[in-house]
């Protein structure tokens, strides 16, 4: 019905204005003001194939109307809107409307960025990346070819990497591996811009560490014994990959205990509990955790988990025979 209405309107417009030579743009503007954008569009499409195509305002209005009519069903309308504004700029030989048109273009192109944020919010990460690329390409092409996207890219790809990281936590197997690869890829873009960003270093390290650790932790208990070395090797590949990122994150923010914990996990997974590096980081970790554990045990003297942890600390990294005996005796009494 709407189609028929439009055809009738086109016929009417063509008959009226071919015959009498009045302005299509003026009529379209009336419809635009009345918020009848479908009708305005029809008049403007006729205008741009008439002599009115040399009028910048005709193209500007067409751009505005197409932008108003943009919807998921009419997804090409945004591009038509942009093309119209570009054409408006081309025919504006005296640059009379330059600032206005640039504003229109900016506000239209920024919609791709808006889409990127919305898609990310909805979990459509591929769609988000496509929209962000479109935003950048069009911004460079139509607004500022020399614009430096470094700050935007760092912000966007950090967020995208973070969303992949969030997704990775809910997946297993091949799907998980694919998402890890994508997350790492986007964080690597950030690190290319600025290798001293803490979060990408930390998150890439954690993704690799978890990828390795999960292979062992989720190993089928009935795995043939001959297959174990290969699984171990794949897990350790993850630990090896994680280490440089985590070490760098540790340099960037030495106060982060979670980074030290992950580094400790890597060394433990690679070389076991007698390794020098493992002991170094485990000691560091224990030094930081000890005050909290002592506080917990004074509040809850029968907390077996804390008691065991204190016994481990006092018998391994921060050796203290008297403390070790004290807490062992308490634990033994509780377990008797």
């Amino acid at each position: 019905m709407k189609g028929l209405k439009n055809i009738a309107l086109i016929v009417l417009v063509t008959l009226a204005y071919t015959g009498y030579g009045q302005q299509y743009t003026a009529k379209a503007y009336e419809f635009y003001q009345a918020q009848q954008f479908d009708s305005a569009k029809v008049w403007l499409d006729s205008a741009v194939v008439s002599n009115e195509r040399f009028n910048s305002q005709t193209w500007q209005l067409r751009g505005l109307v197409y932008r108003k009519l943009e919807s998921p069903e009419n997804s090409t309308y945004r591009d038509i809107s942009i093309e119209s504004f570009v054409q408006a700029r081309n025919v504006d030989s005296t640059d009379k409307y330059k600032e206005k048109i640039d504003g229109y273009l900016y506000n239209t192109i920024i919609r791709y960025y808006n889409d990127a944020v919305t898609s990310m919010n909805e979990g459509d990460l591929d769609g988000s990346e496509l929209a962000y690329s479109a935003y950048k390409n069009k911004y460079k092409k139509y607004i500022d070819a020399g614009f430096d996207f470094k700050t935007n890219d760092i912000e966007y790809y950090n967020a995208l990497g973070g969303n992949y990281l969030k997704m990775v936590a809910e997946l297993t197997g091949e799907e998980k591996a694919k998402m890890v690869a994508k997350g790492v890829h986007y964080y690597e873009i950030v690190l290319e811009y600025d290798p001293n960003q803490f979060m990408p270093n930390f998150n890439v390290g954690i993704m690799y560490y978890n990828q390795g650790a999960d292979l062992i932790m989720n190993m089928d208990p009935l795995t043939p014994i001959e297959d174990v070395p290969a699984i171990e090797a794949r897990a350790q590949e993850g630990f090896q990959k994680a280490l440089p990122y985590l070490q760098h994150a540790n340099k960037l923010d030495p106060s982060r205990t979670d980074v030290i914990e992950a580094i400790t996990g890597c060394y433990y997974g690679l070389w076991g509990s007698e390794n020098e590096d493992y002991i170094k980081y485990q000691t560091m970790l224990d030094e930081r955790n000890l005050p909290g554990l002592l506080e917990k045990i004074s509040a809850d003297p029968e907390n077996k988990t804390v008691l065991k942890e204190l016994i481990r600390i006092y018998s391994t990294t921060l050796k203290d025979e008297a403390q070790y005996k004290k807490y062992s005796e308490i634990l033994n009494k509780l377990e008797d």
Binding site: A169, F202, G212, E261, T264, Y268
Partner: peptide, 9 residues
């Protein structure tokens, strides 16, 4: 990030 706790691998 996902899980940072050290795992006994």
């Amino acid at each position: 990030p996902e899980v940072t706790q050290m795992k006994d691998t």
